[in-house]
Computed example of a mutant assay.
Amino acid sequence: MKGDEQLLDLGCGRGAVLIEAAMRLPTGHAVGVDLWSGKDQSGNRPEATLANAAAAGVADRVDVHNIPSPGDRYRAVDEAMRVLRPGGQLLIADFWPMAGKYAAHIGQGTLRGLGSGYWYGGPWLGTTLLHAVKKG
């Protein structure tokens, strides 16, 4: 890594991974994308992510974008698969119904439940990992 790379963090939340990556990109740029919603009870929102980036001193190297609609989310998954090199891997951790819908949408991938450590309030909101590999 040279520090001038461009990074995309899909599902950046409040920016923990995004900011950590931006700190390693002194001449690069990091873009975070998430599904922020006004009804999100955890306080996730673009302003929180940008405030965290400012507090870490990397606001000049970070941009954030919201994907509000289900159709836009599928387009984001399509674009992520498109930009992968052959053999590149896409990993998506999401609530189990959405991970299954993404796998069906792209027509491939394996699903693996991540267990009780990744529950959001109970087993009905468990997180599943979708793993897809771009065919060459």
Score class of each variant (00 low, 15 high):
K2Y: 10
D4W: 01
D4H: 14
L8K: 02
L8N: 01
L8R: 09
D9P: 03
C12E: 00
C12V: 00
C12Y: 01
G13N: 14
G13V: 03
G15S: 09
A16C: 00
A16R: 15
A16N: 13
V17N: 09
L18C: 03
A21M: 07
M23Q: 11
M23T: 11
R24C: 04
L25H: 06
L25M: 07
P26V: 07
T27L: 10
T27I: 05
H29G: 05
A30S: 06
G32S: 01
G32N: 06
V33D: 02
V33P: 08
L35Y: 08
W36Q: 05
S37G: 07
S37E: 10
G38C: 04
D40K: 12
D40F: 00
D40I: 02
D40P: 13
Q41C: 01
S42D: 12
G43C: 08
N44V: 00
P46Q: 07
P46C: 03
E47L: 04
A48S: 09
T49G: 02
L50C: 00
A51I: 00
N52C: 08
A54S: 13
A55C: 09
A56Y: 05
V58R: 10
V58W: 03
A59D: 13
A59W: 09
V62N: 04
V62F: 03
V62Q: 01
D63I: 00
D63S: 15
V64F: 00
H65Q: 06
N66D: 04
I67S: 13
I67A: 10
P68W: 08
S69Y: 02
P70G: 13
G71P: 06
R73F: 15
R73Y: 15
Y74Q: 11
A76V: 15
V77A: 10
D78K: 05
R82I: 02
R82K: 14
L84H: 12
L84S: 12
G88W: 02
G88Q: 09
L90W: 11
L91C: 10
I92A: 02
I92D: 03
D94V: 01
M98L: 13
G100N: 12
Y102R: 04
Y102K: 11
Y102N: 09
Y102D: 04
Y102V: 12
A103F: 08
A103M: 07
A103G: 06
A103Y: 11
A103H: 12
A104G: 15
H105T: 05
H105M: 08
Q108F: 10
Q108W: 10
G109L: 11
T110I: 03
L111E: 11
R112W: 12
G113W: 06
L114P: 03
L114W: 06
L114I: 08
G115M: 06
G117C: 03
G117F: 05
Y118T: 10
W119L: 08
P123C: 03
W124S: 15
W124Y: 07
L125P: 00
L125D: 13
L125G: 11
T127M: 08
L129G: 10
L130M: 01
A132N: 13
A132W: 11
K134Y: 05
K134N: 04
K135A: 11
